[in-house]
Write a protein that binds this DNA or RNA. Sequence first.
DNA 1: GTATTGACTTCAT
DNA 2: AATGAAGCCAATA
Length: 115
Amino acid sequence: MKQPSEKVIRIWKTVQVVPSGKVASYGQIADLAGLPGRARLVGKSLGLAPSSMNLPWYRILRSSGQLAFEKGTRQAEMQKGFLQEEGVVVMNNRVKLKQFGWQPDLAEMLIGLEF
DNA sequence: GTATTGACTTCAT
DNA sequence: AATGAAGCCAATA
């Protein structure tokens, strides 16, 4: 039985810590998950995540604030929809990190470190 | 074992 | 702002 590696699990958990209405970058998630430099692994892991766990993958974007998908793709539009539903303004396929970028709180960090 | 890939990041043009 | 190259490292082939 092949299961996702622990690293993937950690990434998922870390993603779940991101609060609604905020967004985080792949690199940021990787760092919080204790996997610095694994930004790309984060993306892959999100792709592996089953939809049944309600993983808020849409709160994760690039360091520049751009959505991970190209504009016009179905995923990008869906991501945009989810974000706006949480109050995050998405314009021209990007989000203003100055405004919506998530800064981990101590309490939230603790959750992330519980693993 | 090496080569390629990827929901990335950063620096240089 | 846009584009490209290099860096990065686990997973796949």
